[in-house]
């Protein structure tokens, strides 16, 4: 295996709205070709972290480095250059409601690749087909279901074949089979295009199926409490919050039951004997 190459580095990042600190002292590295999971309880600042990474919020402290270039220290043009290689799928889909799905995707192609409308539509059809939405080119976002919006939004995020793909809860609200298909799609993207993929999710099945690296944001301590391969974390991490999270709160209970099991058995026998 070749040496992992850092793609995005977050150094000592602190995020805050006014005086209300959301998360602080975040330091982690996303390697090229990683499927990086940002996980944590509801409202712990996962989406906010993504908004900081894609340039919608300026961090109040710390740096974000893309390929060694500090994102926030450069000027606007520099940022646009970095963002050109970044695709973002928002939690709500955020498809442009005045445009059809094909136009949503086509707009980006026309803006950046300078292709004509016909060609843009062709590519848009391909992207839609990749997420299982072939034939929906002329639908408006308001005419399709929530799950379809998510998929269409992923198609739009992939429009320019980005190096980095941010997905905010891609499988939230999807049925298990669609969720699974999405996981396969994510794995496929990484395998074929080598895309670095950052996924915000708390879907456990998905986390273990696709995640190669992760960071866990804790609500109470307002900082990251662990990072690494989620499977390894589940097996080795001693932190109660993380164990609870990764096992849906069942892991610790089971262990405790096992530990208490012997004593309980003795107790039982004593009663029967007595």
């Amino acid at each position: 295996m070749k040496e992992p190459e850092a793609h995005i580095v977050v150094e000592d990042l602190t995020m805050a709205f006014g005086t209300n600190i959301v998360q602080q002292n975040l330091t982690f590295t996303i390697n090229r070709g990683d499927i990086f999971i940002i996980m944590g309880g509801s409202g712990c600042g996962k989406s906010t972290l993504m908004r900081h990474l894609v340039g919608l919020h300026r961090p109040c402290k710390g740096r974000v480095l893309y390929d060694g270039i500090s994102f926030w220290d450069g000027d606007e043009e520099e940022r646009q250059r970095v963002l050109r290689h970044v695709g973002v799928m928002y939690q709500s889909g955020a498809l442009w409601s005045s445009m059809t799905l094909a136009e949503n995707i086509g707009l980006l192609l026309e803006e950046y690749m300078g292709v004509d409308t016909e060609k843009a539509r062709e590519v848009a059809s391909l992207k839609l087909a990749l997420v299982g939405l072939a034939g929906f080119e002329d639908y408006y976002p308001s005419e399709i279901s929530g799950g379809m919006k998510k998929r269409a939004s992923i198609a739009r995020a992939m429009a320019l074949d980005p190096d980095i793909l941010f997905l905010d809860e891609p499988s939230g609200g999807l049925d298990p089979i669609s969720g699974r298909m999405l996981d396969d799609l994510i794995l496929e993207l990484r395998a074929t295009l080598g895309t670095t993929i950052v996924v915000i999710t708390h879907e456990l099945a998905s986390i273990f199926a696709i995640g190669t690296n992760s960071v866990f944001l804790d609500t109470d301590t307002k900082t990251m409490t662990a990072s690494g391969d989620p499977k390894v974390l589940r097996a080795t991490c001693e932190n109660d919050t993380i164990q609870n999270f990764l096992t849906r709160g069942e892991g610790r209970v089971k262990q405790r039951a096992e530990r208490n099991g012997v004593a309980a058995c003795l107790d039982q026998r004593a009663k029967v004997g007595g």
Binding site: R51, V54, G55, L83, V88, Y90, A94, L95, S97, L108
Partner: peptide
């Protein structure tokens, strides 16, 4: 709907 954000990140 985050559509403005989507425009911004799309450059």
């Amino acid at each position: 709907n985050e559509e403005i954000d989507a425009l911004k990140t799309a450059g």
